[in-house]
Design a protein around this nucleic acid. Structure first.
Lengths: 112, 112
DNA sequence: CCGATAGTTTGATGAACGTCGAACGATAAG
DNA sequence: CTTATCGTTCGACGTTCATCAAACTATCGG
């Protein structure tokens, strides 16, 4: 896949600092939790239940992708994103699981 | 202990967003890794191997404490801090472990 | 008292970040 | 072609943040 317009780091190049910085925003944490079902999700505001504009959402997509947390699939004019669960797990075991536990999801839901 | 000059949130009030924001700085992640031995550590720059001034270090202590990650012990003019491992674990199981795994420590050491 | 020590707080500065509206590029539908 | 849709990118704005030097507080030792 040459000239991918949405580059992402290789698994070995995923940096803990970048991942944690990407997770330092409540909206992005919620996005990760929504994505934790492993499926590809449409890149719309409604799919993530966040009260932000689509340009802000797109900015969050970029942040997550560049940190190595997500990957993008393009289908015509529809973009979808999914968690790179296996890649992140192989780099930092247990990290994603701790963010998608019942406690973590409850906390983010309660805090907004 | 009335009028504690260094307040920390109760265990139930530890918020995932605050914890993750506190971890969004490489220096603070390294501090957490150093503190992961469970012991109280002196609040000096040398104890954490960071190339920052003591005022910056103190700022990081405050950030970690207010997020609920650390607790402070005062002994004369000596302050010590320790990880609130059990409290954080009870709120967000596995989170601290994923930050102090061999992979995570190697990554932070390599990235600085 | 007095000077030294440990660490925090304050004030300032420059960089990074979240957010939005508007413009843009690519695809789809008529 | 023309228009609509999907999502990204751009430019701007205000906020937050990491950082430092200097001032400050509290304690210890003589």
């Amino acid at each position: 896949m040459p000239d991918n317009p949405y580059p992402q780091p290789q698994t070995a190049d995923i940096r803990l600092t970048d991942v944690l910085r990407a997770l330092a925003d409540p909206g992005r944490v919620k996005m990760v939790q929504v994505l934790s079902d492993g499926a590809f999700h449409r890149c719309t505001v409604d799919d993530f239940g966040l009260d932000i504009t689509k340009s802000t959402l797109s900015h969050h997509f970029k942040t997550l992708r560049e940190a190595g947390l997500t990957t993008v699939k393009i289908d015509g004019r529809n973009h979808s994103i999914a968690l790179r669960s296996d890649d992140v797990e192989s780099r930092f075991p247990g990290l994603l699981a701790s963010l998608t536990s019942a406690e973590a999801i409850d906390d983010v839901a309660a805090t907004g």
